[in-house]
């Protein structure tokens, strides 16, 4: 685990702090999620550090995506869904009634399983967030944001000559990086990724993984993945979910080499799941 001096200083300033001394960005305490009668997520406690990639792994239906969607309150859009417990980002309770969900989502970006660019031009896709949040006062400022976001997403060189073309005309991998650029453009602190590579081929997956690795220096990234290899490749910390509970969380290397819980051991060796 490599940590820069700046991160260390931040770690000392912010509290609470995870066991390893990393600054905790997202903190969950006793989070429960119910879909109607169904108790989908049970008593989740976790501290997710800033500047790095945390992977959520586990078999299908284990609650990892549900928990991810709690962090930007996307579950609000499902009428039957009820969330209890406490989640804070930078010590601010995100389920506080006085908090505006629009502002929360501006700080917590999300990338979905299936690339979902808007049926607009590549430029308008990236400019959408900055426009609705009023981040650019002039056209040239907007262009600068779009360019920077596309550059950070590693897509600039591929699309710079056709920014007016429809975003839906790109290949699947390009669409997913466009969605990442779209999320980056509103300048979030946290980026949530819900199985971002499951609809992509291996080459596109490798590009997105490289991108995630570059972005971790500046963002708190949380990625849900079905692929344990992907979790091992891109993440520094891993959380294993099973049947709605968070079984084990720790440095990725440790989780994969010496898991403490039998269920984790069974899953990563392929005996369950």
């Amino acid at each position: 685990m490599d940590m820069s001096a700046a991160t260390r200083m931040e770690a000392e300033r912010s509290a609470p702090v995870t066991a390893q001394g990393l600054p905790a960005k997202v903190v969950a305490r006793d989070v429960n999620v119910f879909y109607g009668e169904k108790h989908a997520l049970k008593h989740v406690d976790v501290d997710i550090p800033d500047r790095g990639v945390t992977a959520f792994i586990g078999p299908s239906g284990c609650g990892k995506s549900t928990f991810l969607r709690c962090i930007n309150r996307m579950n609000d859009t499902i009428a039957s869904c009820k969330v209890t417990g406490k989640i804070t980002i930078d010590n601010r309770d995100i389920y506080d009634p006085s908090l505006d969900v629009v502002q929360l989502r501006a700080r917590v970006g999300m990338v979905f399983q299936k690339p979902n660019p808007f049926p607009k031009s590549i430029f308008d896709n990236v400019a959408y967030g900055p426009k609705i949040h009023g981040l650019a006062r002039t056209k040239s400022e907007l262009e600068a944001i779009v360019t920077a976001s596309l550059e950070k997403a590693g897509l600039w060189s591929e699309v710079k000559d056709r920014l007016g073309d429809s975003g839906t005309g790109l290949s699947g991998g390009q669409q997913q990086r466009l969605c990442i650029a779209r999320a980056i453009a509103v300048n979030p602190d946290v980026i949530l990724m819900d199985e971002p590579c499951s609809a992509l081929d291996p080459i596109a997956t490798a590009k997105v993984e490289t991108l995630i690795d570059e972005l971790r220096a500046n963002y708190c990234i949380i990625i849900v993945t079905h692929s344990m290899q992907q979790a091992a490749r891109v993440s520094q910390r891993t959380a294993f979910f099973h049947l709605g509970t968070l079984v084990e969380e720790g440095p990725t290397e440790r989780i994969f080499s010496t898991p403490r819980d039998q269920r984790t051991q069974d899953y990563i060796t392929g005996r369950t799941g």
Binding site: N72, M74, T77, V102, Q103, L104, R105, A106, G109, M110, F112, K114, N116, P117, F118, P119, Y128, G129, I132, H133, C179, R182, A183, V186
Partner: peptide, 21 residues
């Protein structure tokens, strides 16, 4: 598709912004 709405809401758009744009 619902994914269009999700994409817009996840960027912090309000309901009316999502509908209009």
């Amino acid at each position: 598709p619902q994914s269009m709405r999700d994409g817009s809401y996840a960027l912090g758009a309000t309901k009316s912004e999502t509908i209009r744009q």
